[in-house]
Computed example of a mutant assay.
Amino acid sequence: PSDAAYDYAARPGPVHDAVARISLTGRIGRPMITLHGTLDALLPIAVQSDVYARMIAEQGRSVLHRYYRIEGGTHVDSLYDTFPDRLRPILPCYRAAFTALTAWVERGEVPPPSGTVPRPRSGAPVDTGSLT
């Protein structure tokens, strides 16, 4: 039988219980920062991070979450050299987010509000990782 013929609904209760324990619910319990490029072709933002951010909000946990949509960011930075006029490297934003998350968790320094991070208007995008 192929994987496409897998009948999840027919699986026994313990299988459903195990999946429920690891399913995304939005009930986060610790500070979390999400970054997602607006031009991500591998994981479309509208059906991935936008959905999870709504789940977190519906669970009343938005106070623990920051969601930054990185304008011109894609899933991986390797395409930047091919389309520098349309894309921006997302790695500098990941670094900024990690620093912000560390400050939030260790020192209680709440990061900027969620929002879309515009492409830099000047300077080298590879050097710009601000979350504002």
Rank of each mutant, 00 (worst) to 15 (best):
P1W: 11
W104D: 02
P12H: 04
F98P: 03
Y80E: 05
D127W: 09
W104H: 06
V105L: 07
P92H: 14
T34M: 14
G72D: 00
P84D: 05
R86W: 08
V47M: 07
L101K: 09
G13T: 01
S122A: 13
P112Y: 15
D81C: 03
D40Y: 06
T34P: 02
A20H: 06
P113K: 13
A57C: 02
R11I: 05
M55C: 00
I70H: 02
R119K: 14
L35N: 06
V63F: 02
D81M: 04
G123N: 06
T38Q: 06
P113G: 09
P112C: 15
I90P: 00
I45L: 08
A46Y: 10
D81W: 06
G108A: 03
V51A: 03
P44A: 12
A96F: 06
R95Q: 14
I28G: 00
P125D: 06
L64Q: 01
A97G: 12
D77V: 11
L42Y: 11
P14M: 04
W104N: 02
R69G: 13
Y8E: 10
V51F: 02
D85H: 13
P113V: 13
Y6F: 15
S2H: 10
T132D: 15
T116W: 13
E109W: 09
P14K: 04
A100Y: 08
D17Q: 04
R95G: 12
R88V: 14
G13P: 00
E58T: 02
Q59T: 04
R95H: 13
T132Q: 13
D127S: 14
R119C: 08
D127K: 14
L24I: 14
R30P: 00
W104L: 09
P89Y: 02
P1N: 10
Q59W: 01
R54Q: 07
A57K: 03
T25R: 03
I90Q: 01
L24T: 08
Y6E: 10
L64D: 00
T99G: 11
E71A: 14
R86C: 05
Y94M: 15
H16L: 02
G108F: 05
T99F: 13
A103G: 08
C93V: 15
V110T: 15
V47G: 11
G72E: 01
G26R: 00
P12M: 07
I22P: 00
H16P: 00
E58R: 10
I28N: 00
D127Q: 15
T82G: 02
S122W: 08
P112T: 15
L39E: 10
G37T: 10
P14Q: 07
Y67V: 14
R88M: 07
A53N: 03
L24E: 11
G123P: 10
E58I: 02
F98I: 14
E109I: 14
I70D: 00
A46C: 05
F83S: 11
A100F: 11
S49Y: 06
G129D: 05
G29F: 01
P31G: 00
A41R: 05
E109D: 07
H16F: 04
T116I: 15
H75V: 08
